[in-house]
């Protein structure tokens, strides 16, 4: 190993002594980016990110381009693509392209916040269940099982019909509340194996409290896995939100892709206006695909067994 001496020398120079976390992140990123799957995922996601960012611009150019309230005064029915409206307009004369851009923003908002919340719940509950063991573990995991077998969409629909129109944030919260059990199971199993590692015993010998062991010793070690699961949760959150919106239980004050689909369907343009139906449908598929691809590529980075060509020295 002729490079190991150099590597070690490099490691010992003060400049190269980066934090372990940063180093691991950079190594992981290099591996991640080698993977065409990950590259495609990042590319797609970047496209949607750009869409979400530029969604703020059209309403500034002309109030007519506001996704909710901007109506083209010259148009009173759905029209196809034109120079003025790149994707056409809906039946009220609202610009579909701006709606599509705004939809990206809403998808990110819903997907990431719901996924983040479910990851926080799932990680906390999983760590506590795995670390505490015994009765606590059994109780928490049975509770997780119960939520897991509940048909989440049905329950949300029921709640929506009981309480009327749901605010977008309530929807996000509901998605998060239904999506943590899967995460908590994975984090629990990781915690169970971490608990057997000697450094946890070392922490106990040093007199560390349970809180300290969970947050200082277990949390950093399960965080990469939690991040991985977050990408999968984003996907499911976006799909659930779109389904709810399409079924007419979305927040009527937001322009999500699901809402666009619902408008197409409600106004009877399903088969008359492909320029209205297709873009949001394609966008939903692609954004979930991009998160899924990123998740898959991340999984390969985190789980060495999945790496195909590992060359051992």
């Amino acid at each position: 190993m002729n490079f190991s001496a150099e590597t070690r020398a490099a490691c010992n120079t003060a400049a190269a002594k980066r934090s372990y976390n940063l180093q691991r992140f950079l190594d992981g990123w290099a591996l991640f980016y080698e993977n065409p799957v990950g590259k495609l995922g990042v590319f797609l996601l970047a496209c949607f990110g750009v869409m979400a960012l530029i969604s703020y611009i059209p309403p500034l150019i002309d109030p007519m381009y506001h996704p909710m309230t901007g109506v083209d005064p010259w148009i009173s029915n759905a029209t196809g693509p034109s120079a003025k409206h790149w994707l056409g307009t809906d039946n009220l004369g609202r610009d579909l392209f701006t709606q599509l851009l705004t939809g990206a923003r809403i998808a990110f908002m819903v997907g990431i916040s719901a996924a983040f919340m479910s990851i926080v719940f799932g990680t906390l509950i999983g760590m506590i269940a795995g670390y505490a063991g015994r009765v606590t573990d059994a109780a928490l995991m049975r509770f997780a099982d119960m939520i897991m077998v509940m048909p989440s969409l049905l329950v949300v629909l029921l709640l929506a019909s009981l309480f009327g129109q749901l605010n977008i944030w309530i929807i996000v919260l509901l998605i998060a509340l239904f999506r943590w059990p899967g995460v908590s199971r994975v984090i629990r199993s990781q915690t169970l194996s971490l608990k057997q590692r000697p450094f946890i015993d070392m922490a106990r010998v040093a007199g560390a409290s349970h809180m300290r062991i969970i947050f200082r010793h277990i949390l950093p070690n399960v965080l990469p896995m939690a991040c991985l699961y977050m990408t999968f949760r984003v996907t499911s959150a976006i799909i659930v939100e779109a389904a709810l919106a399409f079924l007419g239980f979305g927040d009527p004050n937001t322009v999500s892709w699901g809402m666009m689909l619902q408008w197409v369907w409600k106004t009877g343009h399903m088969f008359q206006a492909p320029y209205w139906l297709l873009p949001p449908g394609i966008c939903i598929s692609l954004i979930t695909l991009s998160f899924y691809l990123i998740g898959r590529a991340m999984e390969e980075v985190l789980d060495p067994r999945l790496r195909k060509e590992e060359n051992f020295e």
């Binding site: 590692r197 015993d201 010998v205 040093a206 007199g207 560390a208 200082r216 950093p220």
Partner: peptide, 29 residues
């Protein structure tokens, strides 16, 4: 009462720097 562990590869938390590892008992106490 303290322990010197068996396996130095497993007994240090990989996410903690040497200073954090050595100073942790001081913080706890």
């Amino acid at each position: 009462v303290q322990l010197i562990p068996q396996d130095p590869y497993q007994s240090l938390n990989p996410y903690m720097s040497i200073f954090d590892t050595v100073a942790e008992p001081l913080i706890i106490h």
